[in-house]
Design a protein around this nucleic acid. Structure first.
Length: 356
DNA sequence: AAGCATAGCAACCGCAACAAT
DNA sequence: CATTGTTGCGGTTGCTATGCT
């Protein structure tokens, strides 16, 4: 025999509250208080669950609530407390008069998390992504780092794939040496799912190859702390980070060589439809982290733990900004239209990334 | 102008902690 | 101390408005 439900589900109304319901609930609570939520809907003449009434009151109807936009000061409090407390929304909300835990949680999930990500800061740990990756990389053996880098690149590939598969495309990927056979990707026909999956796999392989490595840079091994082109992070070549002190909003993982002034001031980084950089978009879509990641190509994942077998892995630094700019150019070329035709790629696409 | 994608927000759900008996 | 009921919390979902193609 289970616990009795908090209300009779079948006779209870769900969904948006009407102004009449709000009025009934508010006037009842103003007279009788919020003693027993199970009895409140019955006594107030509402066909609602007590739990639903409590939620409506605490999150919306309470007279001491603020309903407007979050101020900069409030946002900074949330970020600071979240870095210490994590997702303890009720505790965070308690420090913000007039705000509910639901408000804070929603604001975090829709705005602040993206804002931090856009600035290159991991919203979970509140550390710069590059710092985290450097920390991880420094604790792993090179083959494991390769695995990690592969996974990182995999995310980028999926994003790019998504970009490409939004519309019908017919592309050829062509890679510099060692030249793989050109891969024709023909997406958009739904009639043969197996063939489409096969094509997607081919695209993934093509992208892997298209992001081609620079043989000269193989002299710089990621685990060689004395060589390479490491930045301010010190130990791990290719990972640059550095941020200005002060509020979290001024933090950035950018290095001087890869950031615009706008980014260093905390602006959001974007690439527009033309592949041009811009900043400060209000909705924060297409946010990217700047900085660099490293790829060791052509390492079969099932044998990555054998450094003797793969003593000299290839690697390439990827600037995500350039990645997306290239991706958009690729998209425009594939669709056969671009606002700036001078920037269109000729047929026989070559996707290439330069080191910074 | 229509259709689609995305962001923002309100509300729901399940679980755990707490209180009452 | 065990059981039962209530409240609070955080994750998730679904609806609506808005923007984009």
């Amino acid at each position: 025999m289970g616990r009795i439900p908090c209300c009779e589900k079948e006779s209870v109304k769900k969904g948006q509250w009407t102004p009449e319901e709000d009025h009934k609930l508010s006037s009842y609570i103003s007279q009788h208080g919020t003693r027993n939520w199970r009895l409140i809907p019955k006594n107030a003449g509402l066909q609602r669950c007590g739990k639903s009434c409590r939620l409506r009151w605490t999150n919306y109807l309470r007279p001491d609530l603020k309903h407007g936009q979050f101020s900069d000061a409030e946002e900074q409090i949330i970020v600071r407390l979240h870095s210490v407390l994590g997702n303890r929304w009720s505790v965070i909300a308690a420090q913000l008069p007039g705000r509910t835990d639901n408000d804070v949680k929603n604001h975090w999930n829709t705005k602040l998390r993206k804002k931090l990500s856009g600035m290159g800061i991991d919203p979970v740990t509140h550390k710069p992504y590059s710092h985290l990756m450097a920390e991880i990389a420094n604790t792993l053996a090179p083959p494991q780092v390769a695995n990690l880098a592969e996974a990182t690149l995999g995310c980028l590939k999926d994003e790019m794939l998504h970009l490409l598969t939004k519309k019908h495309i017919d592309i050829q990927f062509q890679s510099p040496a060692p030249a793989p056979p050109p891969i024709t990707a023909n997406l958009g026909s739904k009639h043969d799912e197996h063939a489409d999956n096969d094509t997607i796999e081919k695209i993934k392989i093509g992208l892997s190859r298209a992001i081609i490595q620079d043989p000269e840079t193989t002299m710089n091994k990621p685990w060689d702390h004395h060589g390479g082109n490491g930045g301010s992070s010190g130990n791990f070549p290719g990972f640059h980070y550095g941020f200005e002190g002060g509020s979290p909003w001024s933090q950035s993982m950018c290095t001087g060589s890869t950031c615009t002034a706008g980014e260093q001031q905390g602006g959001q980084l974007r690439v527009d439809e033309n592949g041009d950089e811009c900043s400060g978009e209000k909705d924060g879509r297409n946010n990217m982290f700047s900085g660099e990641c490293e790829l060791w190509d052509d390492l079969p994942s099932n044998d990555l733990m054998n450094p003797l077998r793969y003593p000299r892995p290839h690697w390439v630094q990827i600037n995500p900004r350039q990645f997306w700019a290239e991706a958009r150019l690729l998209k425009h070329a594939a669709w056969g239209r671009s606002p700036r035709t001078s920037r269109m790629r000729p047929p026989g696409l070559e996707l290439r990334f330069t080191t910074m």
